[in-house]
Design a protein around this nucleic acid. Structure first.
Lengths: 117, 117
DNA sequence: GAGCGTTATACTTTGTCAAATATAACGGTT
DNA sequence: AACCGTTATATTTGACAAAGTATAACGCTC
């Protein structure tokens, strides 16, 4: 297997390009936070440092009118994180956009794949 | 105008993420090369150094089975660059993918825009 | 063969971003 | 009150990418 198979994954950034935008990285982090209830666990699963994950959470919370992720500190479990209703909506819409873009570009995408070295 | 209007521009990378991929930057460079017939002029128009533009051309030429850009050195005009048939095809398909992704994601994109801070 | 504008390539410097490290704060449980 | 696992934040270090600088090669015109 000389190269990894083309992933057919359009990478959408919103509302503009750049590191501060909401894109595939933040969306994936959001999914893992929703699944695990912890920023730290999500970060570990994604192979990134807690620092970086927290940085991303802060950035996306600041990007929208209200936070996407709520956080609790201390307590018996040490604390945790969860998605707000807005967070769920953003993730749902973004995931749907990814799928829509994927299907809309599939034909040309496959054609281009055959032209690769 | 507190922020630039969201550009509604999905940024597609092919065949995978990363700096070596074919994405919006290389596509735009390709368009300017086709229009001007010169790597240097295209680079200037895009506000990038000739060095960087040439680097991008080399990278995309190496990515596909055959070059996307042909080049001539010397001569009365000093030289120049042009798209090959393959280059035209790649650019056409990529542009169509951009447009298809744009229309396919428009509704959710606009909805998300209203949720921004 | 001198001049010109372009492509071609190496090398150095700078700037930026990610990673690592360290420390603090929180608040339930025990 | 000591403990624990988490969130919160600053600071330093390191790696890598971008930018800048320099120089060469090319080939047509004159």
């Amino acid at each position: 297997m000389p190269r990894p198979a083309p992933a057919l994954e359009p990478r959408l950034r919103f509302p503009h390009a750049g590191p501060d935008a909401f894109g595939p990285g933040k969306a994936e982090l959001l999914r893992h936070i929703a699944a695990t209830g912890s920023i730290r666990t999500a970060a570990t699963e994604l192979g990134m440092s807690y620092n970086r994950a927290w940085q991303l959470v802060t950035a996306m919370n600041a990007l929208f009118r209200d936070p996407l992720v709520t956080v609790t500190r201390g307590g018996g479990t040490g604390g945790g994180a969860a998605l707000t209703a807005l967070g769920e909506e953003v993730l749902t819409r973004y995931s749907r956009m990814e799928e829509a873009a994927r299907t809309a570009t599939r034909t040309d995408w496959l054609a281009l794949t055959r032209l690769l070295r």
